[in-house]
Amino acid sequence: MAERQPLLAIEGLTISLPTADGGRASAVRGVDLSIGEGEIVGLAGESGSGKTLSALAVLGLLPGGAKTGGMIHFAGRELSAADGRAQAELRGKDVAMVFQDPMTALHPMLSVGRQMTEHLVFHRKIGRAEADKIAIDMLERVRIPNPRAAMARFPHQFSGGMRQRIAIASALVTGPKLLIADEPTTALDVTVQAGILRLIEQLRRELKLSVLLITHDLGVMSALADRVYVMYAGRVVERGARAEVLARPRHPYTRGLLDALPHGSPSDHPLTALPGSPPAIGRFPAGCAFHPRCRFAEDICRADIPELRDVQPGRAIACPVDPLSAVPA
């Protein structure tokens, strides 16, 4: 896959969090990630895999006490991940974020209009009237009916799906280049999910937007992402084009996630749950963190942390055994 000049490139990102007993625990352990212009990149993994923390690090919004290392390149700018102030420059202007639960991510006591325009007025130094006009246009674009009236209303007067549309509109109203969407459909009804996914796809096309889509739901991933990163215990274990990764997973963990997904008719694909549960931050097993749950684990898996290595052009896995290379689709 021909690499375009990436809009965002994360290099060697590490994040450690303070623990209750005063120590520190590694939560993200050397993540490399890049997103091209207009590209949708999916970041998959279970809770505790470090996917949300990695995204928050780009925005400099990690919880207090978190320590970070590594570099973040954004549109030709170089930011040290450890320096939260540099990221503050990007926040809201170049990089915007949409959160999981639109019921709680919109302020319950501020009008939609206020929430749509306050950062616009601040970043662009424009007047209220002009900001209102831009905001109404954006609400129209995300298909909020009667956007002018919607500006005067409050979040509790909208349904969950509408709220998520408003949250997306509010994130994009300043014209950012990158949208980080953290589980944007998880809190919504299934019927509403598809509409939000279509909206993100449409906005990517219309606004030439790059999207980092964080989700544990590979179904959402397959609907939207161009490329996919799979994370486990603070490291990327597989990366590649979406069609490739989802159709022919090479890492046993990716395979396990896919096998646990219901698809097709029940008879041709028995559902298998991944044994065990993901390790908590601070309790990552030595070697390959996945080895206790992996049916292909060998001695080498227990000894060394496997590096992410290219196995095909644009395709990389962090598995020394690579047991699935010969498995047909």
């Binding site: 915007a96 991510a105 319950p108 950062h119």
Partner: peptide, 24 residues
């Protein structure tokens, strides 16, 4: 979440605290 969302919008800390956090 809405305070985190306000931070993500790049609003100055003062605004986040006085408008978004203090009001509720």
């Amino acid at each position: 979440d809405y305070v985190r969302a306000a931070r993500a919008k790049g609003l100055p800390t003062r605004t986040v605290i006085l408008r978004h956090a203090l009001r509720p």
